[in-house]
Structures are given as structure tokens and as C-alpha cells.
Design a protein around this nucleic acid. Sequence first.
DNA 1: TGTACATCAGTGAACGCGCGTTCACTGATGTAC
DNA 2: TGTACATCAGTGAACGCGCGTTCACTGATGTAC
Lengths: 223, 223
Amino acid sequence: VDTASPPARRHQRNARGQGARLTGDIVSGAVAVIEREGSAEAVTLRAVARQIGIAAPSIYAHFPDRDAIVMAVVTRVFGELAAAIGYGTEAAGPDPVGRLVAGCEAYVGFGLAHPARYGVLFSGRRAQDYAAAGPAARGRPESGSEAFGLFVSAIEDCVSAGVCASTDAAADAAALWVGCHGTVSLRTALASRFPWPEPGGFVRGLALTLAKITVTEQPRATE
Amino acid sequence: VDTASPPARRHQRNARGQGARLTGDIVSGAVAVIEREGSAEAVTLRAVARQIGIAAPSIYAHFPDRDAIVMAVVTRVFGELAAAIGYGTEAAGPDPVGRLVAGCEAYVGFGLAHPARYGVLFSGRRAQDYAAAGPAARGRPESGSEAFGLFVSAIEDCVSAGVCASTDAAADAAALWVGCHGTVSLRTALASRFPWPEPGGFVRGLALTLAKITVTEQPRATE
DNA sequence: TGTACATCAGTGAACGCGCGTTCACTGATGTAC
DNA sequence: TGTACATCAGTGAACGCGCGTTCACTGATGTAC
């Protein structure tokens, strides 16, 4: 592997008072390294510094150590994942079943489209602690719970609409999350070496089954 | 982390003609390192050598490089997993639904009991290739498929017994595998930071749902 | 308007470490004659 | 029964590398007087 790639281009010095911008650049550089190398192990201070064209010690003004960078990456990627789910859900229209299915498809779609980034969320033994307790997560209680909360409300909406037999939204949301995560994780790991059913229908079926949906086709509810 | 632990004890030299025994010891040592450090990243030639009390270069007589050791570990652990599933299934008795549920519980139980070992199976981007194509896997076609095959036959047995609505055993076995793997992976990653339902009932419900079981209590079929 | 100074943003060289890998080797054990 | 030799199982020192981290520093820019 061509690990020691040259320093791309020299990072342009930030203006006085704008030094904090480099913090974001470092996180972006770490994500770029992860995407290029395929794993969070590749996030070293020197690799990140090369990626964005700075000297390695410059990072210490922004992060106390390597783990803090990975922590910030986890927080950012959890945000991207939640945004992808939210976007997919909104694009699906008003039908709660359609929204739930679209949210799950968006989750799986994000994970399969960005396997390295997705993997960072669950690879580190302590990644989840970073996401919840790290300095970059100030203001938001638990990044991991954001995705879970979206699953819970999707199920609750279906229950309210009378198309879902769930009596414990939290438990069924956990099953839904397990299904979506398992799909991404297993397909990514075993890749093409396995005769997988096509993801589209598979995820839809998984979502409808695990969420205990009773009426799949919901004709325009009000109008 | 106390990485550089002392060499435990000196490995006793194998008798003439028994040099191949060290091959197995190296794999066992690698598994021990993984269990102790929690990740396959910790498997270095020197760490494994320290673990079993040999000099690092001695490994080259048995494995061409580091990756080959990890490959052999993956093959061994896939075997352990399949054995655990088989044992759980057999202990459940003759009822096909009970056997299917027990197999899933054994899968999840193995994964939660040995998270580091289980993680090796799916962590490396190429771990699955090792399991199928590596020299240590000679004679068995695809280690990963072993677990999958057990899921398929469990579903087929339920269909034969008339207690399962599955019309595509392979697709439903994939869903079952996704559910079991997702449970292990997500619970391991998020650990106690999340209000998980207790594993027992959760896995049972997941298995019955995903396998499309129609009759859960099967009174002694014949007798 | 000038000038000394503080601060900011970031650098370059160096340290000690564990790593994979190579090399020439050592010492025990079996075997041909 | 002896002895030279081949083989086996494994060693110890050394290499060059990328790493995290430290240290003293540089040069631009704003600010007090």
C-alpha cells in the first residue's frame, strides 16, 4: 500500500482569529484518510497532517491526541447518518409506513455507500463513548441515540395511524436498528462473496416484518 | 496499555518431526492476544511470539506473514462458531422451531461471550477472503457459508414440519443471519450505554419473526 | 504617525518505541556408512 | 559400535520505517502607547 503519499498541497495559513478553522479541516482530513484507506486504524497524526498539508505537531493545538480526532470523526459521521435518514424520510411523503421504510433504506444506503465511514461508528471499542462524552459532542446528549430515536418515532407514527401492531416501540425500534445495522455490516464484510438478495426488497421486507406493520399499502390517508 | 508484557515462559522445543505443532500454537497465541487486547490489530508477529514464548522470526517457518496468521485465526473461529451453533441446536431436541431458536441463541451467545474473537470474523476488509481462500482453509470451501448453511437447513426443517411460511429459505436465512449478526455487533459496540432488552427474549422473537414461523409451540410431533 | 511588543498560527528537528523482516547462527537429533 | 554429516527447530542481532510526542523556534498580525 502506498502509505506515505506526499503532502498533497501546503495548507494555507488561516487569518488571525480564524485558527479554529483548522479543527474542522483536521476532522475532514481524518475522514478522507478513512475513506482512502478503508479503516479508522489509518488515522494517524502524521497521515492526517499529510492529507491536509500541515505539520503533524500543528494538530496538538486542536486535539489533545489521536483518539480525540477519531472521536470527532464519529460525532460527525453519526450526524451525517442521521441527516441521511431524515432526508430519506422527508422525501417519502406523509404515509408513515412509507416513511419508516424509506428511513431504513436511507440508513442501509448510507452504510453501503460509505462502508469505511460507517464502520468507524462501531469499530472502536470505545467509539460510542467518544460520540456521547467527547468535547466535540457538547450540546447533544448521545449521538448514537439520534438514529435510535428516529426509529422509535417512525414506529410510533405507524402505531398512531393504526397500521402497526407494535406494543413496545422501543423494543421494536431496537430490532429495526439491529436489522439495518446487521444488513450493512454483514454485506460490507462478506461483500460480493455471497449470493445476497438485492438490497432494495430485502430492506423493505426486513423493515415491514420487524416493525410489525399490518397494512403495507396505505392509500392517501386524508384528502 | 501494558503492551510489552514479558515472554510468559519459554516455549519448549518440539521434538524432531513435530515442528508443525508450533503452527497451532501460533494460532492459539494469536487468539489469546486478540482476547487480551480486544482487537485483531494487536496481532503482531512480536506480540504473538511473546505470548507463546518464542522468538519472532520463528514464525516465518510456519506463516509467510502477519496476514496469514489472522487468516488462520478467522478459519479457526468460524469453526468454533459453527460448533457452538451445532451444539446448541442438538441440545434443543427434535422440535424444528426449538432447534432454530436454539441455534440463533447459540450464535448470539457465542458472539456476546467472545466479542473480540467474533469481531475478527467481520472486521478485516479481507477477513472473509482469508477464510475461504487461505491455505489454512484447505479442504473446506467457505467457512463463512458454514453458519449460513445451518440457518438454511433450520428453516427448511421448519418448512417441512409445516410450521414456517417461508417460500425462499435462502433469503430468509440471510435475514436470520443479518438479525443474529446485527444483535451481536450492535450490542457489543454500544455495550451497556444503551437500554437493551434482555437478549434471551429478544433473540427468540427476532428468530421467530424473521424465519416466518407460524406455530411457535410444537407439541411433541410424533410419539 | 510611528514603534515596541504580545499574541497567534504553525514549523522543523529530534527523541524513543514497536514494528516486519533479513541474516547468519546454534544446538539437538537422527542417519548413512 | 563408532563417527561424520545432514536435517530440523528455533535464536539473537540488526536494518529501516512510521509512529506519537516534545521542544525551541518563526514569521505574520494586531494593539498599546
